[in-house]
């Protein structure tokens, strides 16, 4: 526990560990986690606590992922999920920018869109999923459209806010250097709003992986969500956990991609 001396020196963060020790600690924790998990699943078998299919050990799960990858089955499911997310999210992002940028800029557009957004936003998007299925059937269209719908709101709102909070002094500075309206928009508003727009896009990426799963639970023949739900019907626990981990990796990669792009575009933010 930190003492008063520690607290006034570093605050609650504590002294930072040397890089190598921090890395060793992290690695150790992950290994300990895997060991504990293996031990637990082993004990279930040894002591006959409950049916061992309920708690598959980590090696079984990783083995299942490996097996699905080798047989090629995994790639079909992965591709199906990725395609839905890519199309749905991109459409959502384009819509959010196409409507959010003007709405941030002009009060009239904002007043027009606000009632619709205000009424739909508090409704949990999942509650609308059955409506999409009723409208567009159980196929691809409803899944893609649903991702577009769910991701639109956070990205739209962050775009509007980003445009509205651009520092007026920046606009004054540009105007007194001779910038006209379109120049003000493209050379000042857009770059100044970019950091917050990217934050919204990161949220949108996370959200699209969040909601794709459930639309693949409900009537799909392919996709990682289908793999999970299929596993549930047949008590294939390694398949369920394996597909969840692959989804996690996808989400992680998607986030990392946006962060990387952001780091390039926003390198001016770092001292």
């Amino acid at each position: 526990m930190s003492t008063v001396t520690d607290l006034v020196q570093w605050g609650l963060r504590g002294a930072s560990l040397p890089r190598r020790r921090a890395l060793a600690l992290r690695l150790g924790v992950v290994l300990a986690f895997l060991a504990l998990w293996s031990l637990a699943s082993g004990l279930v078998v040894l002591l006959g606590l409950f049916n061992p299919i309920f708690l598959a050990g980590p090696w079984l799960v990783l083995g299942k992922v490996w097996e699905l990858a080798l047989s090629g089955e995994l790639w079909g499911h992965l591709g199906a999920t990725l395609e839905r997310v890519a199309v749905g999210f991109t459409t959502g992002a384009l819509l959010a920018l196409a409507l959010g940028l003007p709405a941030g800029q002009w009060r009239a557009v904002r007043n027009l869109l606000e009632p619709i957004v205000e009424i739909l936003r508090p409704i949990p998007p999942l509650a609308m999923l059955p409506l999409f299925i009723v409208w567009a059937g159980i196929g691809e269209t409803s899944k893609v459209a649903f991702i577009t719908y769910a991701t639109f709101f956070p990205m739209f709102l962050s775009t509007v806010h980003a445009v509205q909070q651009v520092d007026p002094l920046l606009l004054r500075a540009a105007a007194s250097l001779g910038a006209r309206r379109p120049q003000l928009f493209f050379r000042v508003v857009l770059p100044a709003a970019l950091p917050e727009i990217l934050t919204g896009i990161r949220l949108g990426v996370a959200l699209s992986f969040f909601v794709i799963v459930i639309s693949e639970f409900i009537g799909a023949e392919q996709g990682l969500g289908y793999l999970i739900n299929d596993g549930r019907n047949f008590f294939l626990v390694p398949q369920m956990l394996g597909a969840a981990i692959v989804l996690g990796l996808l989400g992680y990669a998607g986030n990392a991609l946006v962060v990387r792009l952001g780091r390039h575009w926003l390198r001016w933010e770092r001292p």
Binding site: D167, L169, L170, R172, A173, A174, V188, P191, A192, L194, L266, W268, E269
Partner: peptide, 10 residues
């Protein structure tokens, strides 16, 4: 300006 108001992205 007193606050400089440089364009931070340039």
């Amino acid at each position: 300006f007193q606050e400089y108001v440089l364009f931070p992205w340039l």
